[in-house]
Design a protein around this nucleic acid. Sequence first.
RNA 1: GCGGUGGUAGCUCAACCGGAUAGAGCAACGGUUUUCUAAACCGUAGGUCGCGGGUUCGAGUCCCGCCCACCGCGCCA
Length: 598
Amino acid sequence: MQVSFNLATDIEAALLAAAKAAGLDAQAFSPDVRTADPRHGDFQANGVLAFAKREKQNPRAVAEKLVAAIDPTTRERYAVSIAGPGFINFAAQPSTLLEWLRTYGSESGLQHGAAAGYAGQTWVVDYSSPNTAKQMHVGHLRSAVIGEAICRLLAFSGAKVIRDNHLGDWGTQFGKLIYGFKRWANPAALEHDPIEELERLYRLGNDATPEGSAALEEARQELVKLQSGDPENAALWRKFTEASQRAFDQIYSRLGIRFDHYLGESFYNDKLDRVYRELTELRIAEESKGALVVFHDEVPRFSRNAERPNPFMVRKADGASGYASTDLATALYRTEHFKADGIVVVTDFRQGDHFEQLFLTVEKWFKATGRRLPKLNHVTFGAVLGENGKPLKTRDGGTIKLKDLLDEAEERALAVVRAKNAERPEADRFSDEECRSIARVVGIGSVQYADLSQNRSSDYIFSWDKMLSLEGNTAPYLLYAVARIRSIFRRGGLGDPSDTSSWETTATPPATPTECALARKLAKFPDALALATSTLRPHFLGTYLYELAGDFSGFYNADKVIVDDPAERARRVLLCARTLQVLETGLHLLGLRTLQRM
RNA sequence: GCGGUGGUAGCUCAACCGGAUAGAGCAACGGUUUUCUAAACCGUAGGUCGCGGGUUCGAGUCCCGCCCACCGCGCCA
């Protein structure tokens, strides 16, 4: 019997079988297997405690009965012990670890193991979603980085992932922009840096159209013309959209992001009437002060009786559509057209109320129309703060453009790479071009990883020094571990790290404390992956990779890889190869690039 | 006012449906290199988990009350 990808599933199955064999009420018993503190073993089963409590039995006695009934294969694979009030501890034998390392070697092997979780499911992930005709700024960073990592995690676990960039490409701002454009557009500037110019024109348009002015009325007419399909304005709008998309794509390519669709708000323009009609006919929405709204009376703060009523505004009193209606149409389209089993929307936490109301409305709407309801997830994240604890700004208080931020990351990384390069023996030095290419990977990776290594729901403090540090839970530390392993293969003439068949046959089970610690950590990759994916929280994977890199460093320092004894050498080379595999796979899942040398 | 999120070591952060002695990194102190990248490793020190009650064999985690911070609450998404 082959070891399973996630060892915990073997243990769980073994305990359920043991419960049956021991005559326990297997229906009532859930093993509750989880990774354990290494001091206690690799996995622990805590289910006996809850079970014994319910059944009013002595937990210790139940645990003993259960352990006695565990099948021989499992007993061979794990050292099983009972501790404390009734914890059952499982420590994988070195031979079991070796078996796992042999079985799950390649990236496809890992992926095959992971693919069970979401096989056959379609997930639409809505992330980044900037406004067209505007620069992307720091505020867009987290959605892009977290969203991409989530896409990759879901895809690795077997889902068909549809990356949808829900652009803010429709709305009142375009009236003012067209107004400004028609009066003050500078063709040369538009050619050179279109977004910069469009922002300038919007500002001019906005400043020229104060509340109550005739100019504002003109700007509104431009909007009306656009919305009713006026060829001139429609052409301008397309021009804005195309220029924006080119600018966005430059950022996305630096971040390793590629969307399948750019279905912005404008796309849903002709799909709103159906939303109004259905919601009205179904009496989910109602008229209130001229607007079309949905109250959710079962939730006090969305109830019509709330002290400050906060209805879901499907259509505004002036007849204009708001983002609520667009988002409803979007949910419908994703369900009908993409046949989504799950929808993930990655935006900041301030939109929490909106999405809660949206999801409540969608649930009622789809139930009333007999539609299948996808899993709806609002993935939120906190603000990006400067080191003073306030929202991150430029020195003079302006908004930081995402492009500038990425440039600075690369520059700062380049300074470090060059400094380290100068300390290197002359024969090992990088060319200037190599330094730059390393700095790109390190710089961008540092920004991505700083975001991903932290629990997304809290605000995070943006610190160049911390994210570019070679110490601690940072991208450079992880990339360095990768580069070191590659270096071992290069220097030792060990061939391609992804071809390990000969090492697998010669290797003996891990023996030294650091080898064992590393092997045990490697076998826990599936658990970290599953946790990160199911909770849509990439930091669980990041934390794991950091611990893995730490265990590797400990091993690297204590155990020389290139030794004479063939078996010893083979098992260490195998550990290196697998660590490399897991680190690279994991970093790629988070959206980072990795390096051969650094 | 109602609601959301957060409060863990001097600082930045972990802690998976309630589990074993709350863990890392930085900063501080001490050690390791004729050895595959010292951008590393090992060690020491550092805690009333915001405060007060409660539930439980067991609470940073769940419940109640309170304090503090940030945020949301009809036309920006």
